[in-house]
Every structure is written in C-alpha cells, then in structure tokens.
Design a protein around this nucleic acid. Sequence first.
DNA 1: CTGACTCCGTTCGAAATTCAAACTAAGGCT
DNA 2: AGCCTTAGTTTGAATTTCGAACGGAGTCAG
Lengths: 151, 151
Amino acid sequence: MKWNELAAQPCSIARSVAVVGDRWTLMLLRDCFLGVRRFEAFEQRLGISRSIIADRLKRLTDEGVLRKEAYQDRPVRHEYRLTDKGLDLHPVIMAIVHWGDLHYAGKDGPPLIHRHRACGCDFTPVQDCSECGETVTARDVEVRAGLGLAL
Amino acid sequence: MKWNELAAQPCSIARSVAVVGDRWTLMLLRDCFLGVRRFEAFEQRLGISRSIIADRLKRLTDEGVLRKEAYQDRPVRHEYRLTDKGLDLHPVIMAIVHWGDLHYAGKDGPPLIHRHRACGCDFTPVQDCSECGETVTARDVEVRAGLGLAL
DNA sequence: CTGACTCCGTTCGAAATTCAAACTAAGGCT
DNA sequence: AGCCTTAGTTTGAATTTCGAACGGAGTCAG
C-alpha cells in the first residue's frame, strides 16, 4: 500500500492517519491547541524547515482542519485557526499527551498541567462509554464490522 | 529540530509522537488492537514493505509497547503482543478512530462498530474529566506549565 | 536427501522526502 | 533609498522510505 491509498481504505484509522498521522502535523496541532496561530511562531517553536511547515499547514487547511484568516490588511497577513473539525481532534491530542505523561514524565511530573474550567480541578482525560458512562479499557471493547466496511 | 531530538523535548506530545507518531506505526497499532500478532499477518493487512514492518515492530518492541513472544519452537516463531504500556494507547487509537468516524464515514456509517462489553451497547468514546466526570471539550481546558517543564 | 514450502526477517539500489539556506514578495519604518 | 517584518517558495544535497530480491532455519512430501 502506498501512502495516498491510505485515505481510500475502509478504515477510520487509515483515513484519519492520512490527514494527521505525521510527526510534524501532530506537533503543529499541539501548538494550535496551545493558541499558536502564526507561521513565524510555528517555525520558532518547532525549529524545522519552513517548507515543511508551509506544506503541513496547507494540507491541514485543504482538509478543513485549519482555516486561514486575515488578521490585518496592509500588508495582508494570515493566521491559522482550528475549525470545528480541527477542534474535534482535541481528544486525540489529549490522549497522546496523557500517554506521554504516564510513560515519559520525569520525577517532576508532566511538563503541562490541564485544568478543567467547569470544575476548577487539574485533571487527566478519561475515556468513557457514550452509553453507560463507565470508563472503557482495551479489554472492554468488542469490535465488529459496520455497514461502512465495503471491501 | 531533528527527529531524534523530539524525544528529548519537555513535552509529552513530542515524546509520544517520537514513539508512535508515524503513519505505519499507527496502522500497526490498530491491527494489534484488532488482535493481529504475526509478522505475516501485518504484512498481508498493510501491504507494505517487509523492511518497514520489521523496523516499526522493532522500534515498538524496544520502546516496550509490544513484546515478542514465542508461540512455537522448531522453528522458533514469535508473535507481537501489546504490553500494558501498549494497552495504554487504547484511548489514543479510539480517539483517532472516532475522529475518522465523525468526519470520513460514508452514508453507510463507520467501517467498524465498537461494543462495550460491560453494558452491552454500541458506543463511541467520550473524553471526560477525571475529577468531575463531565465531558471535556477543547474550550474547557486551561493549560499551564508543570514542574516537568524544564527549559 | 532433494526440492518445495513457511515464516521472519535483511539487503540493496531507486524513488520520495526532508533539510537548510537562499530567494521572492508586499508593505512599513526612518 | 535602504533595511525590517511576515509569510512563504525554490533549490539541490542529505536522509528516509520503498519494493523486490535474497537469506536462513526449520518442516514436509516423495
């Protein structure tokens, strides 16, 4: 399988990974959720080649994850903001952060702390069942084919 | 920044992405959670170069996400199984699947359906606050530096 | 005991990606 | 006029990734 065929697979992982499953793309999205919006800022934070940043931002914009918005005229300058589709990636980013916190944090604890505004507590993300509300672990899940699985 | 420097960043995303933030790695992990364990099976399902599969499996094994276990002698053959650290990635995979289901499922619905054994219902993963149990969205979260953020 | 088959990799050269550094562009400031 | 800012694009060399062929360790059939 080649990379561009991934998006055509009848698998939601494959389709998602085709859009965001890239090292630098995930780092860009992290920064987006931290409020970074400008090309220059992405470059400074990541320290990678401008061409890569331009390419990834364009890809995310084409996919509707980010949108480009003018923040000034004379000269026109744009910033990149998460769309609703992009905001939907929040659980993905939080899940990745949490895995890193669990397994790679040093003795000082995690690099970033997340506070839930609604309850005011520092928290970690927990994955629950949409139906019963209980926490779901890998062993609790049974997978079967859905109608969307056209092979 | 180069790729190998990512793991050294004081950022849980960077550290996680250094391990699993790769297209084929994520696809391999999907298959692991679906019960695939043998080299041959990974190859057939992904249809990619054996060298890539060998490389990614080795990397995941070195990182303690998978472990290699003999399932027969004469000749010795190994299968790859998720460790506890690997099982901890379940929320990450589920979050990615769910995003794909939301935005890329066709009119027939998602390719795979997940059932929660405990309650017997088909479900989607929901991300809740560990403290108050309420659903968390991107706008509900406030981020601040933790002690682990050594810059 | 020879040859075919299974499963799990490794090796190799070609193709694609990534990189840093230079270049473009459009306007502002002094 | 000359330099600064922000946001890219271009370029050619270095690095990765890929597919296809090869290797190895053992089984099985004749």
